[in-house]
Design a protein around this nucleic acid. Structure first.
Lengths: 297, 297
DNA sequence: CGCCAGATTGACACGGCTCAAGCGGTGTGG
DNA sequence: CCACACCGCTTGAGCCGTGTCAATCTGGCG
């Protein structure tokens, strides 16, 4: 939420935002990865549900994948510049792909919701260009890179599905860029919320949707290129107009058509027609605590 | 270069910028596609030069491709929402991928330089989410979608190369998003110029590079999310500091290390190590006229 | 019950946008 | 061969959307 051009003078005050790498986000002490029972860990995944896979290919994928692991919030799943040897699927919880500016400015290049593949680039690129960090407690599944490559070589459907995932991510990123470059704060938020409501598979009824929405205002700011303060003010406007409401991590959009109009949102770019409909996870998910970081030890 | 939040009141004045679709860019009357002799049209292409292809696969690609065609400047190669049935390679000249905001704001999601693939998404997505338009006269080569799919199915190297192209485009887009969201005008321009100097394969010597650079200031603005006026002022600053100079479509960066520092540029994300080095095209290319559009009808 | 992350508020500053001319070069029609 | 027409580049004045800085408030958790 810091902009780069601003120098980071105040190393003094305690809870002031600080450059990312200096620990504005809490440093992680234990990754607390523990195994969880599972049978079809990939089932709710966008890759799994894409129309490009045959059932045989689905089976092959399922066998190649590790079992579920649960991860704390604020954990780096992928660190910028370090070797990455697995594709990570986020089965439950939210994460983000982020990059930082020399000045400490932080920016998200993706918000990852349940079912998303966190780091497709690890398939072909060994040093990731940006990190991936959980925003909530999450459960993930890994597909070792070598296995993924082998599968993609043997099964053209799997290769095609990977390419498709990359193309959709591209389309989303292009829309984000459009927002970042040419939309006002209000439009940015409207567009983002419309997008997320669809991506998490929330069921709209009577122009209204509700869905789990763990990000803090600061994290929203890092996604749309604003300041946490300004996100706050803009949210107040949207709230005052009766368009959005957030209560205990659940976001409600009360007038989706209006929001779409404001944000200039057209769902086509998400290409949801190439995926089997995904059921929305339970509205209040006990595994979703935006676990507050315990202070330094 | 219009920002969306601004209403477009002045339909009166003559040379004022106008919403994109209303013809700020000249409307195209004739596509003027004419054949040109060629032998290995794909040779200078990033796909062709990627390490993922075997020589057999290169041959297969070469055979599948149409012969070169030359295209005028300001021509839509791909129109948003319309069916696209070919992958287009831009062999010579520059183009851009663009999208527009309801308010008429225009934004580029990519600048395409010689050797780039214009619309990889056409491989799997039939209605493109954004348009592609030439910025200069250009020569292009097409690979029919069905052929591309068949090749990707038969040759895993080709499939892999496609995926790789998508991933690199993604990485570039992510950096653009970082710029858009968190960098100042000066930083944005510095970063963009550093990126382009590498992508066009310009040879740096003694901290200095020169390369063909056809975009107008307005087009630069559409790439970095600024106004043409502000790009102009920022360019003046960079020029005054002796960092960049443009003369007759040739850009010279006189102090690349300094520019990289300003823009926070780290070339890793371009993953040039996965492509055979590409020779820089001749510095002044007679085919590069930023052909001015003749006026109406 | 105290702590702390996150949400909220207010005062103020500034980067970048808007509006409005003006300038120089270059194809083009007369 | 000249004179427009027109594109792209510049410049100046003024404004406003967002950022900055600094408190304060609030609810959940240990």
């Amino acid at each position: 939420m810091l902009r780069s051009q601003q120098t980071c003078r105040s190393a003094s005050v305690l809870y002031r935002p600080e450059p990312f790498h200096l620990g504005k986000w809490p440093t992680v002490r234990s990754c607390a990865i523990k195994r969880v029972s599972d049978d079809e860990p990939l089932k709710c995944t966008r890759l799994w549900n894409s129309y490009y896979l045959s059932s045989e290919e689905r089976r092959a994928l399922q066998q190649a994948v590790t079992s579920r692991r649960s991860v704390n919030a604020h954990v780096d799943l992928v660190s910028e510049g370090e070797l990455a040897d697995s594709l990570l699927f986020i089965v439950e919880g939210w994460a983000c792909r982020y990059a930082t500016t020399i000045g400490g400015g932080r920016h998200f290049s993706a918000l990852l919701v349940p079912g998303d593949l966190c780091n497709l680039e690890a398939l072909l690129i060994d040093r990731p260009d940006c990190g991936v960090r959980t925003m909530t407690a999450a459960t993930i599944v890994a597909l070792p890179r070598e296995l993924a490559l082998a599968l993609a070589t043997q099964h053209s459907g799997i290769a095609r599905a990977f390419t498709w995932l990359a193309l959709v991510e591209n389309a989303i990123l292009a829309k984000w860029a459009l927002s970042l470059g040419r939309r006002s704060a209000k439009e940015k938020l409207a567009h983002l919320f419309c997008e997320l409501s669809l991506r998490v598979g929330a069921q709209e009824r009577e122009y209204e949707v509700s869905f789990n929405f763990p990000p803090t205002q600061e994290q929203i700011a890092d996604a749309v290129g604003l300041t946490a303060v300004h996100v706050n003010r803009t949210m107040q406007v949207l709230r005052a107009e009766g368009l959005v409401a957030i209560a205990s991590r659940i976001m409600t959009l009360s007038d989706v058509p209006r929001l779409r109009q404001i944000g200039g949102f057209d769902p086509g770019y998400l290409h949801l027609d190439r995926v089997r409909a995904n059921t929305q996870p339970p509205l209040v998910n006990p595994n979703y605590p935006r676990s507050r970081s315990r202070r330094g030890s």
